[in-house]
Design a protein around this nucleic acid. Structure first.
Length: 290
DNA sequence: CGATGCCCCTGAGAGC
DNA sequence: TGCTCTCAGGGGCATC
């Protein structure tokens, strides 16, 4: 589920109760997610202060005051819920409820953190494709999870010249190239489809065959769709929610994703098609995407 | 190097 | 309130 905008939405929601706050208690409710939790995971989190909460690609990272970083990946169905202790109150843009006794005791609630905000943070992940681990902060960049990651699409580094260089000579379809986290870090299936639609590029075009003048509009489309999606709180299809349980809104603005058989939103008269590329669904308008 | 398929796992929705 | 099938926002791995 969660692509860059959803992870960023979760980060913004966690920030007020996690950044510059101390973890007073940590609990894992099973031994593993996609991979086992590291040795003494809960113990190593307990009494640590979070100095900074940030995002790289689709990973959430919490720098701790002991030189380790808590790394979180939401996989396909991962979710974070925040409950503030005590009376309901406003923190940042979210309203938190006090934590009911059962919060964090659900079938798919795997990790529960208490912080001195005070707040309870619950990680829920039915499919368990998510990941939580601890990595020495000064070795993050060399770690296998991060070593090969490409450019952040919302950074200044990501421009037409970069993308032209990155895709040069690639025989793979542009859709697959944009999904490749070694090229651009954080794009997923939804936003690649939406960005290609906005740039009027066929997902089937080979990356190396894009004309030089198509990179600037493609970069602009990627950045715009990500920014709009973040502003909308991400897309809620099945699992994604804000940390207060509210739904994202961007799914109502999809031009092509999940709209197979429906008319193209442009007045071209085309019909949205679904094809499969690298094992994932691609949605596009064959009439206006060339 | 690149493309494809399978795997991890659970739940939702469609079709019967 | 059945059963079976397909599909899902990710990503790692094996294979050809």
């Amino acid at each position: 589920m969660p692509e860059l905008p959803e992870v960023e939405t979760v980060r913004l929601g966690l920030q007020p109760v996690l950044e510059h706050h101390r973890i007073t208690q940590a609990e894992t409710r099973r031994g593993d997610l996609r991979t086992p939790f590291p040795k003494n995971f809960a113990k190593r989190l307990t009494r640590r202060c979070v100095e900074k909460l940030w995002r790289r690609a689709k990973y959430l990272l919490a720098n701790l005051d002991n030189g380790e970083t808590l790394v979180i990946h939401l996989g396909m169905s991962g979710r974070m819920s925040v409950y503030a202790e005590g009376r309901e109150r406003r923190l940042g843009q979210y309203v938190y409820d006090s934590a009911p006794a059962e919060a964090g005791r659900g079938k798919h609630d795997h990790v529960v953190l208490e912080t001195d905000a005070p707040a309870r943070i619950v990680f829920t992940d039915p499919r368990r494709f998510g990941l939580m681990t601890l990595i020495a902060t000064d070795k993050l960049e060399q770690h296998p999870l991060f070593k090969g990651l490409g450019v952040e699409p919302l950074s200044d580094e990501f421009d037409a010249a970069f993308l032209e260089r990155a895709l040069a000579g690639k025989k793979t379809p542009v859709k697959s190239a944009l999904l490749d986290q070694r090229v651009i870090a954080g794009l997923g299936n939804i936003y690649v489809c939406e960005a290609l639609f906005r740039a009027r590029l066929s997902p089937k075009r080979l990356a190396r065959n894009l004309s030089s003048k198509s990179f600037a509009p493609l970069v602009a489309a990627i950045r715009a769709v990500l920014r709009e999606a973040i502003r909308a709180g991400g897309s809620s299809l099945r699992d994604h929610q804000r940390v207060d349980g509210a739904l994202g809104e961007f799914q109502h603005r999809f031009a092509v994703y999940g709209r197979e058989g429906k008319p193209c939103p442009e007045p071209c008269g085309g019909t949205i098609r679904r094809i499969v590329q690298s094992g994932r669904s691609t949605f596009y308008c064959p009439k206006c995407q060339r």
